[in-house]
Amino acid sequence: MPPFCAKCGAPFGAGCCSGSVPCYALSLHEGISRDLLLDLKYKNVRSLGIPMGRLMGETFSAVRTDMLIPIPLHRSGRREYNQSLLLAEGVSLVWGIPAEGRMLIWRKNVDSQAGKTGPSRNMMAPDAMEASKSLDGMSVVLVDDVYTTGNTMRAAISAVERSGGTVSSVLVWSGRVPSQENEAAWKDIGIQTGRGAGGSE
């Protein structure tokens, strides 16, 4: 599918957000793509993570960046591993860029978004995450499993920027866009795959 704005989910370049960051999704969140992700996240099939990440790395063109940063596992999460870190490690094997899993953390007083619907998903504070000060002056690519409302990604981008870093782009396994929230913006755009983070492959 074409790149979209990591902050609001509209087609990238549509002038929707100031300082918009391009987000690249391997697929829509449906069918076998969704099934694989659910197996990775909720059925403890950890072995899927790195191969799925490798596929992301092979599909998206590598970009010039200092590191790959996965979205951290929420403090309240019970999973024994961070699926986004596994995806980032898979991308790292292809791109040759290090994946660092300790650059972002959730603040203690922020609840998980899992299971929330409607307006409650839109209540995440922009400072919900904190980033390492070592990111000052660095360019990073954020990696996550699925893009839904953009709340998590906005918080991650904000955290990196407050630490002096720059988010050059975002990679996700799947995306729930087009969606009801922005279907008007996507009306005349066909869904495509194989778009690279640095251009088509």
Rank of each mutant, 00 (worst) to 15 (best):
A99R: 10
G90Y: 09
K187V: 09
G53V: 08
A6S: 03
L85R: 08
G118V: 09
T149S: 08
R176V: 13
R162N: 07
K133D: 15
G53A: 04
P119W: 12
E100W: 15
P178K: 02
D136E: 14
C23N: 10
Q192T: 13
T193P: 00
K116N: 05
I50N: 05
T149W: 04
K133Y: 14
G13E: 01
G196D: 00
A88I: 13
E89H: 13
F12E: 06
E30W: 08
F4Y: 06
S132I: 13
P119C: 08
P126I: 10
E161Y: 00
L28H: 10
A184L: 11
A197L: 07
K116C: 06
R46S: 04
A99M: 10
V140L: 02
N44W: 14
G101I: 11
L55K: 13
K108D: 14
V91W: 07
T148G: 01
T149P: 00
I32F: 09
N82T: 03
R176G: 10
R195A: 08
A88K: 04
R195G: 12
A14S: 14
L142R: 04
D136Q: 11
R121E: 00
G13F: 07
T59H: 00
E201Y: 13
K133W: 15
N122F: 13
E181S: 10
W95T: 06
R121P: 04
L104R: 09
E201K: 14
